[in-house]
Simulated scan of single mutants.
Amino acid sequence: MPETVRTTRVRGHYRANGSYVRAHHRQIGAPAVVAAGGSGLLAVVVLLILAALGGGGGGATQVPAPSAPASVAPGLPQ
């Protein structure tokens, strides 16, 4: 069975050293395709772990009620 070669478009961009790279197509090998395709499952697993640890962020949060000041500043009328 022949190996499938996929390509992706790379946009033109500037490198950190200031040189410009023209837009081109890049080949993606089989290991990169598998890694890119499997990243969705990894994201789901991470979200499930965060939810189990209480970091889901979807629940309601309780805000404490404001309390009265402990004392009045000196020199102000009471």
Rank of each mutant, 00 (worst) to 15 (best):
H13T: 05
V33H: 04
T7C: 01
S71E: 03
A16T: 10
G57H: 08
R26L: 13
Y14V: 10
P77S: 03
V5C: 02
G54T: 10
R15M: 14
P2C: 00
A51C: 08
A43P: 00
G18F: 08
L41W: 06
A51F: 06
P74G: 05
S39C: 06
G54S: 09
G54Q: 09
G55H: 15
T4R: 09
P64W: 05
H24M: 02
R6L: 15
A65C: 00
A73K: 12
H13Q: 11
A70Y: 02
A43Y: 04
P31D: 02
Y20F: 15
G59M: 04
L41A: 14
S19L: 10
G40T: 08
L48Q: 11
Y20C: 03
L76Y: 07
A73R: 14
T8S: 14
H13V: 05
V63H: 11
M1Q: 09
A36T: 04
Q27A: 15
V63N: 07
Y20W: 15
L41Y: 05
H24I: 01
G18S: 07
A51W: 05
A65E: 13
G56Y: 05
V21C: 09
S19W: 00
R15Q: 15
R26C: 06
T4I: 14
A52Q: 07
L53Q: 07
A52C: 06
P74A: 13
N17P: 00
A52Y: 07
S67P: 00
E3K: 09
G54H: 11
Q78P: 06
G54M: 13
A52P: 00
R11M: 03
A35T: 11
A43N: 10
A51I: 09
T61C: 03
L47F: 06
A32N: 08
A30D: 02
G55N: 11
P31T: 01
Q62Y: 13
A73H: 04
G75R: 09
T61D: 06
P77D: 05
V33E: 11
S71Y: 08
V44W: 03
L47D: 13
A32M: 13
I28D: 07
V63Y: 10
A16C: 00
G37E: 15
G55I: 00
G37P: 00
A16H: 04
N17Q: 06
A51H: 02
R11V: 01
I28W: 03
L53P: 00
Y20R: 14
A35K: 08
V45T: 13
G29Q: 04
T7K: 11
H13I: 03
S71C: 01
R22E: 15
G54N: 09
A35W: 07
A65H: 02
T4Y: 02
R15S: 09
A52F: 11
